[in-house]
């Protein structure tokens, strides 16, 4: 009798735990869909050619977020162009030359700290370093702050990818008499390029939504500006400002911008994932 009771109790406990785990997954998915649905419901009314062609208006006037979209794209592009080479070269050192060195584990450790460091601290740092020195806010400062966030992501993913390149490829190239730097640049990079590209895309997705680093560096600009040496509009700041405001037309634009950012970043993530899978599949 006791064994049967025990069994029944174990089954019930198991059932409860499994039900809870299903509920947890359902909750997670529900949050995702709730957020996406809220974004679509509030953001779609903002869609229209105005959103992409007009600049941010003063409250009460019609307008769009063209300058913010432009600013975000430019600063993200500059940050990626600056951060990627830095990250790839650092990863190259860690993967190719760091084997016996004592400093490589330290660099790896520090890199992981930087990876998860609060982005507002990075904004503070760039404010002290660039904005105060230069005497004005600038898109350059904003790009630098974003680049500092790109570097650890690229280092992490690139190092993993470089390490995955089979030793046989390395050895074959060296056996042909190729100098080491050519082995790395022409053989290993080419072999790992898809993985590294995935890493870059993930980095872009990460900085696309970052607000805090731009708060004290690029600030914002209500007009169309292509001047990198001055404050530049960006989507996250505009969303921040417009969403917290009491003006209905500003709030609609904020939701439109939020929807655009989220869709862009989610697409990038999915693309990166597809790219990673595709490269893994080919022999």
């Amino acid at each position: 009798m006791q064994a049967a009771d025990l069994y029944a109790r174990r089954r019930t406990v198991n059932g409860i735990y499994l039900a809870l785990s299903m509920a947890a997954t359902a909750t997670g998915l529900a949050i995702l869909f709730l957020i996406l649905w809220t974004l679509l419901r509030n953001g779609i009314p903002a869609l229209g050619s105005d959103l992409f062609t007009e600049t941010t208006p003063p409250p009460g006037s019609r307008g769009g977020i063209a300058n913010a979209i432009y600013g975000s794209i430019v600063m993200t592009a500059v940050a990626t162009l600056v951060g990627t080479p830095v990250g790839v070269l650092t990863a190259t050192y860690l993967a190719e030359f760091g084997a016996g060195s004592r400093i490589a584990p330290v660099i790896r450790f520090v890199n992981d700290i930087l990876l998860s460091a609060p982005s507002i601290i990075i904004g503070l740092f760039v404010y002290e370093l660039m904005v105060l020195r230069m005497g004005h806010f600038s898109a350059w400062a904003g790009s630098v702050a974003l680049a500092i966030i790109v570097v650890p992501v690229v280092v992490r993913t690139s190092e993993d990818m470089l390490r995955l390149v089979p030793a046989s490829l390395r050895e074959a190239a060296t056996a042909l008499g190729t100098p080491q730097w050519k082995v790395i640049v022409m053989v290993i990079y080419r072999a790992a390029i898809q993985g590294m590209l995935t890493g870059v895309m993930l980095a872009v997705a990460r900085i696309g939504g970052e607000t805090a680093p731009l708060l004290f560096t690029a600030l914002n600009n209500q007009f169309w500006s292509t001047n990198m040496n001055g404050p530049m509009a960006n989507l996250p700041f505009v969303i921040f400002q417009f969403a917290m405001s009491p003006y209905a037309d500003w709030q609609v634009l904020a939701w439109g911008g939020a929807m655009l950012i989220t869709i862009a970043i989610l697409l990038l993530n999915i693309l990166a994932r597809l790219l990673a899978n595709w490269s893994n599949r080919s022999p």
Binding site: P58, P59, G60, V74, A77, V78, H136, L219, Q222, F223, S225, T226, N227, M228, N229, G230, P231
Partner: peptide
């Protein structure tokens, strides 16, 4: 990017920051 930066340098821009009190009328 280079072209954009060069082009942007031409127009007159003045910048100010501060109180939210007069913002609706300044805008």
């Amino acid at each position: 990017l280079a072209a954009a930066t060069a082009a942007g340098a031409g127009a007159t821009e003045i910048s100010g920051a501060g109180a939210t009190f007069p913002y609706p009328i300044y805008a």
